[in-house]
Nucleic acid binder design. Structure first.
Lengths: 209, 209
DNA sequence: GTCTATACAAGGATAGAC
DNA sequence: GTCTATCCTTGTATAGAC
């Protein structure tokens, strides 16, 4: 009967805080180099106290890496269902949303980290694919299919278009992490300009007529 | 005056062997999780002997991560200069070579690793960009520019085309490492089919007329 | 739920013999 | 150039008091 956030023992907020801090540190340093001491320090508790919330570092990592898949794609699904949009505008919005998901959000920025640990945590890589990557692909492909059915888009090679849509997005996500130390990052890899130009290219490829 | 591989003290082969083994291990496990003990074991010497060839783990990593840039792009430069090719065929060959460089070779497969350590080794990230990434971009852009000058290709948005060319390649490199544990990898991400379809898309975007 | 204290393993690195 | 032996730090994890 308390007013807190959902569990009876009240440790929910602390657990979420640990996941938040740990996620940021895993993203910054990689799995092995992110230490529990440092995570505990940033949370403001002692290292041993982490073990009250998670049985091991591996379990903590799995919690961080499989958190937020659903939430990341809801806005994309909403764009697919929005009846007020034309097919062309829907595709534009969807591609723009891919940049938000994959370049701006922590979930999307996990890609290089998942690659690093894919052999050690194959089940995490699998979940990332099924619950995050393939959901985005399915939504985009359905937007295209519906446009083709309505005559807005021409028939096209689905595999090629899929990679031409997702390739530049994922490349930008990876490149911006690879070259984060470069001072000219924003000039070299300007998200908005790349995104808009990318949208134009995709529309030229799928537009009917 | 000996017949060996180029240095007077004859330790050249051992050093190269260490780099070879260490590179494979860094690629597989990441920087922090690849231990000197394991590297020494696979080379067949003791851990302490590594320090005769490299002063530290950091120095060994820098040697691994900055090795082979020149060699990786020579074939691409040769395609640019080949007078027997039409502009269209030259572009096709160049894009195909991007897949060889970035998906098949160790140098290209470094991308996720560079992302992992970019904050700790900013000079490595910088070298990777200047001596590897930007060289490839410059060669492709010059192939396109020459084609435009000769009327084979139409004028186009250079930034967008650049990302539509490199995006799918880098995405495939990253995805194949992320999902290496998946048994259906070859069916899900078939390099040749994706490459050919990708080439077709790019040519539709830049072709004149 | 958090703390102090501690066990235990592994990693990077050095000294000095051969 | 490689070895054995050793140092020191750090990391994950556990025990048990409060």
């Amino acid at each position: 009967m308390n007013a807190s956030s959902g569990t009876s023992d009240g440790n929910f907020d602390r657990r979420a805080e640990i996941v938040r801090v740990a996620t940021a540190l895993f993203l910054e340093k990689g799995y092995a180099a992110a230490s529990l001491s440092r995570i505990a320090e940033e949370v403001g508790i002692r290292k041993a106290s982490l073990y009250h919330h998670f049985p091991s570092k591996e379990a903590l990592f799995v919690a961080c890496a499989t958190d937020g898949f659903e939430e990341a794609v809801v806005a994309l699904a909403a764009i697919r269902e929005d009846p007020s949009l034309t097919d062309e505008e829907r595709l534009r919005r969807a591609i723009a949303q891919l940049y938000v998901i994959n370049v701006d959000s922590n979930t999307g920025r996990m890609s290089p980290l998942i690659a690093e640990v894919s052999l050690r945590f194959p089940e995490v890589a699998r979940a990332f694919r099924k619950e995050f990557i393939e959901r985005q692909h399915a939504i985009l492909m359905e937007i295209l299919d519906r446009g083709v059915a309505r005559g807005s888009f021409a028939a096209h090679d689905r595999l090629g278009v899929e990679h031409v849509i997702f390739g530049p997005v994922v490349n930008l996500c990876l490149s911006r992490q690879m070259f984060a130390p470069c001072e000219d990052l924003e000039d070299w890899l300007p998200v908005e300009r790349i995104r808009d130009s990318h949208c134009d290219m995709v529309l030229r490829l799928v537009r009917a007529g």
